[in-house]
Every structure is written in C-alpha cells, then in structure tokens.
C-alpha cells in the first residue's frame, strides 16, 4: 500500500504540474489533437473558473469525440453540488470511453448517496475484459472496497463481504492493503452478525493501522454481542481515547462513520 500511495502521490503531483493527457498521440491537425491542446490550456486556469470552462467548451465543439474534455469539465460541477450538469457531461465521456470513466461516475454516484447506480456502474466496469485496478480520486480506497460498501449500504452484507475479500485476496503482498481496508471488512462482518470474523478482521486492521477510532468502536460492538462486556468496555474506551487523539486517522469514504456520540452512548449503555 505504501508503494501504491507513493506512486499515486507522484501522479497527483504530476497531474497538478503537467497535462494529464499526451496530445501527441493524436494526429497533427486532427480535431482530437486541437481539442486536447485546448483542454490542456484550460487546465492552466483554476478548476471551475469561467476561463477554463469556456476553453473546454471550445475543445468539445472542435473535437466532440474527445472524451477527456467532457470529463474535466464535469469535475467542478460534481464537487460543488451541480449533479445534473456534471452527469450531463460525464455521461458523454462514459459513452465515448466506458473503460476510462465508468468507475469515476460510480464514485460520484457513491458520493451523492445513490448506491444502486454506483453498484450498476462498478459491476459493468469490472465485467469489462480490460478493467484494471482503480482507486477513489483521493487514492485512499480501491474502488472494489467502495463496491463492497455500496452493497452493504443496500443491505446486502454477504455480497459486500465477498467483494472486499476478493479485492484483498487479489493483492500480491500485504503492503498493498489500504489503510482502512480491513476496517471496512470488519464493519461488514459486524453488520452481518459474524462477530468472530469481525474481531479477527478488526484486529488485523489494528496491526496495519492502529489510528482509526472507529475500529475500536466496532471491535467493542463485536465483543458486546459476544457478551464479553469487559473487553467491549475496554474497546469503547480505546475508541474514545483515539477519537480525542490529534493524530487519529480519518477514514475518508468510510460508509459507516462513527461519531463521538456513538462511542459515548455505547459506554453509557454498558455502565
């Protein structure tokens, strides 16, 4: 995972400094080449600015088959709550190149809480023969973890667990595990009332990354359900301590987030 994060950081750095596409792959004077160069120009302006959006429009007019311009133009709309406008653009990119954009649309479906559409796009994506590993735009989670969480959000915990297990089993080394992947697996086991498996997964999470308060909370829930109230209380208190720790790890796209009030409530119920 550390290697992946490093590689991703490098790409994020590069994408901020340089173009994300190589315009030279398109024939000189072709519509795509011109559209690509205009999109490149658009990236020099602040994302979502009038200047950049107008340049993307020009790119789309010149090269209507240049998918990347639709995608880039859609991003600020999604980030700022303009879902209708964002989808109108991104749907064009998906139509032109589903392999590149289906997972990204799924990510926004997830962000805007439409788990059914997220699942539909990711199932389509992973069924494609050339589908490859994809991460959330922030790089913190494999999109297969998001798919597993989305299944769980629709109540299908078994399929969620199976999806996350398949994802983790596909990694060649333990270094490839994300900083909260075993946490996600453990939470789904808790939701599915498989408490022994939950405890095993959450303990493994603590070995990989011990700084996630939510992990101790769910561990506490699992012990409580197994009627080991002493251990449950200990874990809830660990959760509270970690929650107050300034170095705690923030689990982005958690799906099943824990709040301080949840932890306090759990402690209170045990006392």
């Amino acid at each position: 995972m550390k290697t992946t994060i490093l590689i991703l950081s490098f790409f994020i750095f590069c994408s901020k400094s340089f173009s994300q596409v190589n315009c030279y792959i398109y024939p000189e004077n072709s519509r795509e080449r011109k559209a690509c160069e205009l999109s490149d120009e658009a990236l020099k302006y602040k994302q979502g600015s009038k200047e950049s959006q107008l340049l993307f429009d020009k790119a789309i007019t010149l090269g209507p088959k240049f998918h990347w311009a639709y995608y880039e133009k859609s991003v600020p709309y999604f980030k700022r709550g303009f879902l209708i406008e964002g989808l109108k653009l991104l749907n064009e990119a998906v139509k032109l190149k589903p392999l590149d954009y289906l997972w990204y649309r799924a990510y926004w479906y997830w962000q805007y809480k439409n788990n059914e559409l997220c699942i539909k796009d990711l199932e389509t994506y992973y069924a494609m023969p050339k589908a490859y590993i994809q991460f959330t735009p922030g790089g913190e989670k494999d999109m297969r973890i998001i798919l597993g969480l989305a299944y769980a959000k629709t109540g299908n915990y078994t399929k969620g667990i199976e999806t996350i297990l398949n994802c983790l089993n596909s990694y060649k080394t333990e270094d490839d595990f994300g900083f909260a992947d075993y946490h996600s697996l453990g939470v789904l086991y808790v939701k599915n009332k498989q408490y022994d498996k939950a405890i095993k997964a959450l303990k493994k999470q603590i070995i990989i990354n011990k700084d996630l308060a939510d992990t101790y909370y769910y561990l506490g829930i699992a012990y409580k359900e197994k009627l080991d109230l002493k251990e449950a209380k200990k874990q809830f208190k660990n959760a509270l301590l970690k929650f107050q720790d300034t170095n705690k790890f923030i689990n982005i796209n958690a799906g099943f987030k824990v709040y301080k009030s949840d932890i306090l409530e759990a402690i209170e119920k045990l006392e």
Binding site: S49, K50, L54
Partner: peptide, 13 residues
Amino acid sequence: NEIEGTYYENQIG
C-alpha cells in the same frame, strides 16, 4: 457569444 446559450459565473457555483 462563444457558445450559444452558455453563461458562466467567474467560478462554477
């Protein structure tokens, strides 16, 4: 009118 019907604020949003 660079593109008919298109109007943008300085920043989207």
